[in-house]
Amino acid sequence: MRTMEKDQDILSLYQEIILDHGKSPRNAGIIEGHDCRSEGKNPLCGDRVTVTVALDDEVRIADLKFDGKGCAISIASASMMTEAVKGLTAREARMMTEAVNTLCREATSPDQIVKELGDELGPRIEQLSALSGVSQFPARVKCANLPWHTLMSCLDGTGVVSTEG
C-alpha cells in the first residue's frame, strides 16, 4: 500500500501532460526582433533556458518563446508557461508566476489558487495544475520555477537569473 502511494507521487510528478510538453515543447525557439530577452540557469545541474518576449502596443505579451536544455520538468514548465501567459500584462504575468510558485512549493490545493486568481487568470492557472506534483519533490521545485523566474527577469529587464542562491 505504501509502495503504491510512493509510486503515486512519481506518477503525479510525471503526468501525461508534463511528459507531453517535455517531449514536444510548444513555442520552442527564439523570437527574432524580440522586445526583451533573458537567460536563466541552474548552475548546480547545468540546466539553462532563454526566454524571448515580443510585446504589443498595449504592452501585453504578444508572443514568447523559450530555448533551453533541461529535465522534463523544466522543459514542460517552460512550454506550458509560453501558452499560459500569452496576452497578459507584466503585472498579470507576475501574478501567474507567484501562483506557480505557490503551486510548486506548498500543499495548497490547485483549486484554491484557481479560485483566488479570479475569472481572468484562474482558468490559465488551472491548465498548469499538473505542475503541483513537484511540491512533493523539494529538490525539483527549482526546475519548475526556472522558466518563470527567467520570464520575470525578462519582463523586469534585468536579463540574467539563477535559481541558486
Binding site: 512519481i10 529535465c71 520538468i73 529538490a139 525539483r140
Partner: peptide
C-alpha cells in the same frame, strides 16, 4: 529520451 535529473528522482 530521459534527462539525468528525472532519472535520479525516479
Amino acid at each position: 529520451g530521459a534527462h539525468p535529473h528525472d532519472l535520479a528522482t525516479i
